[in-house]
Amino acid sequence: MAPKIGKAAVTGAGGMLGFEMVKALELHAEQTLAWDRAALDVTDLEAVLARFRETRPEAVVHAAAYTKVDQAEAEPDAAFRVNAIGARNVALAAAEVGAKMVYVSTDYVFPGTSGTPYCEYEETSPVNVYGDSKRAGEWMAAGLLEELFIVRTSWLYGEHGPNFVRTMLKLAEKGEPIRVVGDQIGCPTYAADVAETIVRLLRTDKYGTYHAANSGACSWYEFAERIFGLTGISADLSAVTSEQFKRPAARPAYSVLDSMALRINGFPPMRAWEDALKEFLYRQRLLRRESRPIEC
């Protein structure tokens, strides 16, 4: 039987992944502390240290993050304050009380110039401020804490908060033409699956950097196409290029993650992105009857 995790804390508990982390840890940890932004400002070192000294968690999943990719270009200080300094603060507090830590990072630390999936041991080189700030957070945490898991994920969607799946469904309701980028390739990932993987990591001392994304890859356009195909919703959908769909922040053209570290450390692979999407839509009661997953 796998060991209990003990007392676990989640920063950013009000966000998409934080929400799923709290649910997962409530099943597998002896006690779960859920800290949203109102409960804990991770950019305030004294507040973070005081909270850790008071509660003394044995593990912390640091899911609090600045995730506004385009807005970060105009306010880099805000992005680095949360994603880098926040990681430093949580790592310092974890080290003081002897807690292991998970720092949640992103596929956007990679440049997107590769034609093959990125494994954990390849060089990072972000193409936008958001990716720079998350890479800085990795460096901060790794420089301060040995009992650390860096978990990079990508293209997250889930029950809680805005995401690409919900955006596509809302646009389809309006009946307007939907134009989606077709030349950016990545791994759509169900937040609940990432939470389960993090729970598995926390049961061990196999520290290091891990990629946690559903397997397979597609473009944003193919992702949207699959959403509408599974739900049976008719939409005026077409693909455009990144050049045609200009945004303030550049995106990596290819940010597919290879979960080598999970494999070589004996962890089970994450399921295919299409299967995860089916389950999400089924749980939202949006899946066509004939597409119902076999197990949920």
Results as ranks from 00 to 15, higher is better:
V256A: 15
G131N: 02
A141W: 03
V151M: 06
A59I: 06
E122L: 05
D44F: 04
A8E: 00
L45F: 07
E26T: 15
P3C: 10
A9F: 13
K100T: 00
T209S: 07
M21N: 06
V97W: 03
T189F: 09
V42I: 12
T113F: 01
K206G: 08
G143V: 09
M21C: 13
Q244P: 12
N89Y: 02
A65N: 07
G175D: 07
I294M: 08
T116L: 09
M270Y: 10
N265Y: 06
S133P: 05
R88F: 03
D132S: 15
A93M: 00
L277N: 10
L281P: 11
E295H: 14
S219N: 00
E295F: 15
N89K: 04
P117A: 01
A38Q: 10
A195I: 11
G98N: 00
A136L: 03
N214C: 13
D44Y: 00
A272S: 14
L287Y: 07
T43P: 10
L92V: 09
F110I: 01
V129H: 01
A47C: 11
T241C: 03
A95I: 05
V102A: 00
A79E: 10
H160C: 09
D193T: 09
Q244G: 15
G186W: 10
A261T: 14
E225C: 03
T241N: 03
G137E: 08
D36R: 07
A79D: 11
L144A: 02
R271C: 14
F267W: 14
C187M: 01
A8D: 07
K206Y: 11
E295R: 15
R200N: 03
A212N: 02
Y282P: 10
R289E: 15
